[in-house]
Design a protein around this nucleic acid. Sequence first.
DNA 1: CGTATTTTTGTGCACGTACACAAAAGTACA
DNA 2: TGTACTTTTGTGTACGTGCACAAAAATACG
Lengths: 356, 356
Amino acid sequence: MQKKIRIKDIAKMAGVSAGTVDRVLHNRGNVSEAARESVEKVLKQVGYKPNMHVSSLSLKRKYTIVVTTPQASAGAYWESIHNGIRHALDEYENIKVKFRIFTYNQYDIYSCREVFEKIAHYDMDGVIIGPTFHEETVKLCEKLSDRDVPYLFVDSTIANTKPLAFFSADHYVCGQLMAKLITSIIPQEGKIGILQAVRTGDRSANTTILRIKGFTDYLTERGCLNPILRIPFSVATPEDNKRYLSQFFKNNEHIPGIVVMNSRGNFIANYLSANNIMGVKMICMDLTSANVEALKNEQIDFLIGQGPEYQGFFAMKTLLEFLVFKQPVSVQNYVQLDILTKETIDYYKNFTNIIY
Amino acid sequence: MQKKIRIKDIAKMAGVSAGTVDRVLHNRGNVSEAARESVEKVLKQVGYKPNMHVSSLSLKRKYTIVVTTPQASAGAYWESIHNGIRHALDEYENIKVKFRIFTYNQYDIYSCREVFEKIAHYDMDGVIIGPTFHEETVKLCEKLSDRDVPYLFVDSTIANTKPLAFFSADHYVCGQLMAKLITSIIPQEGKIGILQAVRTGDRSANTTILRIKGFTDYLTERGCLNPILRIPFSVATPEDNKRYLSQFFKNNEHIPGIVVMNSRGNFIANYLSANNIMGVKMICMDLTSANVEALKNEQIDFLIGQGPEYQGFFAMKTLLEFLVFKQPVSVQNYVQLDILTKETIDYYKNFTNIIY
DNA sequence: CGTATTTTTGTGCACGTACACAAAAGTACA
DNA sequence: TGTACTTTTGTGTACGTGCACAAAAATACG
C-alpha cells in the first residue's frame, strides 16, 4: 500500500516541471538532452506506471478505428469477436473513439476485395482484421503499412504481413487437442469422421488446414491407427449438405467418433439425431448458440472454445493502449483453448461476463 | 459513441445542482423529498453509470479489509487466491485500502480459533474468508453480522451464514464432471480409485464431500457399474501416505483410472511413476505448479481448475465496489470449471494474466 | 415580524493526467 | 548590446467525481 508515484513526483525528483515529464513520456519533443536523460533515469528507477483511466479522462484527441471481419450472424463466432471489441471500448469509455465495422461475405472474394479497397483509403488510426482471403489480406496490409496505419489480426494470422499484434488460437495445437480428446473417448482404432469443407475461401484456408495437420500429426506421433474418413461439407452452399451427409452415412455405418473443425458441428449433431444415428461421440469447435444447445442435449460431447470475446477485447484494448499510451505490444498472442462439456457450460464466463 | 452522461448532466435534467445529485447517489441525506424524487427519476431514465476509476480518484475515505485463509504455500491453491485478491487492489489502485492477511493452519482447529478470535475484534470494513472449519466459521460470521461487518467467502460457502457474496465452484457439478471424464476415458465398468482424505478438518468437510456426492450420483444416474475403490490419504500427516498407497496398490492391481478430489494429485502421479505403475488414467483438481508439471509429463490426463485467481479477484472487487460505490451484489457466484490437458495448459491464462 | 436554528442547496477544490499557452532561456546576427 | 527568433521550460485549466464548506431557504419560536 505504498503511495502512488505521480508525474509531479517524478518532476520533483528529476528537478524539472511536470510539463517536461509529460513531454518525455509522450515523446512530444522540445526537451533538452539533459532534462530528458534526467527524467528517463527517474522513470526507470521508480518504474512509473501511468494511471490510464485518469489519463484517458483528460485526453482530447479523437481516434478512428476500423474493424473488418466476415459478416457476423447472431449467436455465431464473429458476433462474439465484435462483442469483445465493444467491451474494450466500454472499458476505456473516456477515450473518444469513432469506430466503424466493415463486414464482407466470407464466401465471396469479390465482396472482400470491394470492402478492402474501401478500407485501404479510409482515414483511420488503426485497423482490426478478421482475415479470410490470404492474397487480399496481404495486399490490404501492404497498403496499410505504406500509410503507417497499424493493423491487428483476430481469429488467425496471415503470413507475410507485419501486424502490430494478433490474437488467435494455436490452431495446430487445437487439432492435436481434438485428436487427443476423440482418441480418448472412442475405442482404439475406431474410425473417425472429420468434417472437411469442400470449397476453399472460407476460414479453412487459414485455420482448418492447420487444425487438420495438428490432428493427423498427433495420431501419427502416437501411433494411432484410427482410419480417418473425410465428411464432405459446404459452408457456402448449405443446401448440398443433406445430400453429402446421407451419402456419407450410407457408405459408413457405425462411426464411433466425429470431429468437426469448423463451427458447424451442430449441423452434423442434428443430422445424427434426426436420423436416429446413436452412439457417435462428437468433438466440435466454437461456442455458437447452436453448438451450445447441442452440447447441453448431449449431442456433442466436447466443445472447444477459442475465446472470441477475449480475442476481440484484447485486440481493441491493445490497439487503444498502443495509440494512446504508446504501450509496447507483444505481437504473438495465442489465446487459451477452453474445453467445455454439458456439465461446465452453464458456468462458462464468455469473458463479456468477466469484465462486468 | 454517444456522449457520456455525467453528474452535471443529471443535475441539469433534474433541475438541481450537482451536489444534490451526489447526495442522492450516496444516500447522504439532507435532500428534500421533491429533489430526491426528481433526481431518482432522471437517474433511472438515463441509466446513469458512474465512472468508477474517476470516482475512486477523488475518494478520501480509507478502508481496512481483512483476508483470512489457510496458509498459502508457494505454487499452491491458496496462493492463487491471494494473487487474485492483490490484483483487484491494483485495479483500483486509487482506493486507499489497508489490507491484512490472517492465515491459519488448516489442519489445526486451534490455530483457526485463535486467528478467528483475533479477527472478530479487529477494526475493519470487510472480511474475505477462505473457510475450512464449519463451526468456527459460523461463529465468526455471527460476530461479524452483529458488528455489521460484511464478509465474503472464497473457495466454498458455509451453510447458516449470510455472506455478502461467495465465489466458489459448484463442487457437486465438479464431481459430476470428474465422473464424466473418467468414465469417458477408461473401459466400461473399469475400476476407479478415488482419493479419500482419512481425516476431517481439511477442505474435505466443505468441498470433497460435495464432489464425491456429485461423482457417485453421476455414476448411479447413468447406470455406470464401475467399482469404486477409496484410496486412503492424509493431507495432515503426509508421512503416512507412502504406506497407505503401497498397501492400496498391493491389494488392487490394474486400476484403469484414478480420480483425485483434492489438489494433491501430483503425489499419486509421482507415486505411480516411481513405482512403474503404467496406464492409469488420472483426473485431478487444481492447477498447483506440481500438478501442472505432472500434466505436462502426461502423468495426469485431465486437470480441472476452479479459477482461484478469479475467485480472489472478484471477491475483493465485489467487496470494494460494495463498500465504495454501494453497488448491489449478487450473492451466489459459481465460477467456471476449466478442463486442462497437456495440450492446452501452456496457453492457459490464469486470470492474473488476463488483467494485465 | 425578527432572530435563531435547522434543513436544504449550490459552489469550489482536490485527485492525476493531457495539453494549450505563456514565460523564460538560449541562439543568431547586425 | 540589442533585436528577432527558436528552443526549452513552467503554469494553468479541463476531465468526472467526492466531499467540505458556504449560501440560501425553510422552519421554529419569542
